[in-house]
Structure formats: structure tokens, C-alpha cells
Design a protein around this nucleic acid. Structure first.
Lengths: 67, 67
DNA sequence: ATTTTTTGTAAAATATACTTGATATTTAGA
DNA sequence: TCTAAATATCAAGTATATTTTACAAAAAAT
């Protein structure tokens, strides 16, 4: 799977560490790291928590238009 | 959790049975049923598969603006 | 009315998301 | 440089998403 750079840059834009984002989503730092590196299939609830913490929507962080 | 009526009506609009949608998403009918009834926390990949099969995006089927 | 399709639900098994604890590497600041 | 914060990654454990099999009720079709 591909890295989630949209998420990574949204997090960077808010100057949040993985650890801080993890706390706000109530998961561990490792889980956030795994989601960003893309070798993961997170649950929708976690995706929604991440979106809310980063001020983005699902489409903005987790959707890719198919060609 | 609340029922996913957006998903249910999107499926109805295409005249697809849960079983047919399940096949297109390569999961079981019970999984689709559970997602629609909302007592579930599906993975993002399944949500994406469902969206593609129904011609919708994540925001359209799985996002709720918070008040 | 009767049959067939669709849906709800449930228990047990399997796959995998997520945690815990730990070490190693990278990055940023002093 | 030196040090601390941030990130990557790994192995083993726990929680839960998903499957399999099954049965019953509701809806649709004949």
C-alpha cells in the first residue's frame, strides 16, 4: 500500500507529532505511524477520529479518485 | 451506533441486494448487513470498496458533519 | 396462498487491527 | 558536536472485524 502523505502533511500543517495525534485519537503512536506508512487497513472510526483531529474529511485524507 | 441509511438508500437506488453488493466487495452478506445496521466498525478498505460499488465517496456514505 | 428472494441475527472459528514494551535510527535545537 | 524529541520497526499479546454455517422472519414474485 502507498504511504498516506495527505495525512502526514495535514499533521505537519498543525505541527502535531505522531504521539500527540495518537493521544487525541486515543490510539498508540505506533498505530498512527502505521497508518501514515500505509501498511495498514485502519477502521473507519479511527479514520474519522484522525480526520476530526486534523480538521479534514474522509475524502480529503483517505479517498483517491480512481482513474 | 446509528444505522447507515445513506448506504442503504444508495444500494436501493442501484437495485442491488446485500448479497450482490457483498460479492462486488468480496465480503459476506452478513458483513454488509452489519455495516448497514451500524453495529460495526468496518475497515477503511471495505468502506472504499462499498463506495466504489455504489458510485459514492467516503464523505457521502460514511462522514457526518459534527455539530 | 405459496414459493423464492432478501434480510436479520447468532454462535464458533479465523484473520487482522491495535496494544504493549522495547530497541534503533533520524531529525531538530542548544 | 551533543542531546533530546520524533520516527521506524519488531515481536508477542489482546480486541475485534470478518467468515462460516445455520435458522427464521419479511418482502417480493408467481
Amino acid at each position: 500500500m502507498a504511504k498516506n502523505l495527505k495525512m502526514k502533511s495535514a499533521r505537519a500543517a498543525l505541527d502535531l507529532s505522531q504521539d500527540e495525534l495518537a493521544k487525541r485519537c486515543k490510539v498508540t503512536r505506533q498505530t498512527i505511524s502505521a497508518v501514515e506508512s500505509g501498511d495498514y487497513n485502519p477502521t473507519i472510526n479511527l479514520c474519522i477520529d484522525i480526520c476530526r483531529a486534523l480538521g479534514k474529511t474522509l475524502d480529503e485524507l483517505f479517498w483517491e479518485d480512481k482513474k
